[in-house]
């Protein structure tokens, strides 16, 4: 715009002054939306920061006043916090490995032509349409319930004692449930990416002597690298905040064995009524999410540029 104005000074001069007025007018008209958005995100953030340095417990009105960094100190030295941090990492990492690994293989498989492929594709995508609470309940009561579950019935049918997965291996079971939810997403993105691979490239590779494995390793996988990065990024954002599945199945237990950061904050605030401690946890979660996001964005930017 400045260039255009420089080139046509005659036309620009008279417009110059009103345009500033128009700009302020524009800003004025935009302001409600901007202010709303600012209030929307800044006020909760500010309140969280404020509460995180306050003594504030809902069931103990005698606790008031500044806590300084006490809430943080209490949180960071709490062994539960470290467990939750570790659990979050295991949950995110485990689900990523399973969905991306299995998703890539299944995407390659579903790219082949076989009878009933259309129906099979719909079936493999369908878990994605089940909401987290429902799918967690499905797994808890329909599949894995030690007495009524399908899995348990199957085990008993062959004379074995069914394992009570959710109490014996709560975190692993959660990883499995969340993977089941997110696998379709990975397959969907990766299958679309595979289908965009030029068929002549695969044929050229075949002429060059590449068998199925070499084709996968040298042609398909490099072609998929961008799509895989996108899957990892989007999944990480959502997996850091997994909550419904934990709340419905294990409620973070036994003990804190399946408590992640999101659930820890929730349990501090709404089960233990410690608003100050929960706010401190929220701030820590924001910091962690931003660190992860920064790393991811860097990796993605590099991969998308190449």
């Amino acid at each position: 715009m400045d260039q255009a104005a420089g080139r046509i000074p005659v036309a620009a001069a008279p417009v110059g002054r009103p345009s500033r007025a128009r700009r302020t007018g524009g800003a004025l008209l935009l302001s409600p939306a901007v202010i709303l958005l600012l209030v929307w995100s800044l006020v909760p953030l500010a309140m969280t920061l404020w509460y995180s340095v306050r003594r504030y417990n809902l069931v103990d009105p005698t606790q008031v006043g500044f806590a300084g960094l006490g809430n943080y100190w209490y949180l960071l030295t709490d062994p539960d916090f470290l467990t939750a941090l570790l659990n979050t990492a295991i949950l995110v990492g485990g689900v990523l490995v399973i969905t991306v690994g299995l998703g890539t293989l299944l995407a390659v498989l579903f790219d082949q032509s076989f009878p009933g492929r259309g129906i099979a594709r719909v079936l493999v995508i369908s878990p994605f349409f089940v909401m987290p609470t429902v799918s967690a309940l499905l797994w808890k009561n329909l599949m894995l319930h030690p007495i009524y579950g399908v899995y348990s019935a199957m085990m008993r049918a062959v004379g074995l004692t069914p394992v009570d997965w959710l109490s014996r291996y709560p975190l692993a079971t959660l990883v499995m449930i969340v993977s089941w939810e997110w696998l379709p997403f990975a397959i969907l993105i990766l299958l679309t990416a595979i289908q965009s691979l030029d068929a002549e490239q695969k044929e050229a590779a075949r002429m060059d002597g590449a068998g199925p494995l070499a084709q996968f390793r040298y042609i398909i996988l490099p072609h998929l690298s961008r799509a895989i990065t996108v899957v990892i990024m989007i999944e990480t954002i959502f997996l850091l905040a997994v909550f419904a599945e934990i709340s419905v199945t294990t409620a973070g237990g036994p003990g804190v064995a399946s408590t992640n950061l999101a659930f820890l904050i929730y349990s501090r605030a709404l089960l233990q009524f410690d608003v100050g401690g929960a706010s401190a946890g929220g701030v820590v979660a924001i910091v962690i999410a931003n660190i992860v996001a920064a790393f991811l964005l860097r990796a993605v930017a590099r991969n998308l540029e190449a």
């Binding site: 002549e200 044929e203 590779a205 075949r206 002597g209 490099p222």
Partner: peptide
């Protein structure tokens, strides 16, 4: 198989490996 025949093919779209 295509590789065992000892032939080489040049495709219309070149089909170079982009990465």
């Amino acid at each position: 198989g295509p590789a065992e025949r000892g032939l080489a093919m040049v495709f219309q779209s070149y089909a170079l490996y982009p990465h």
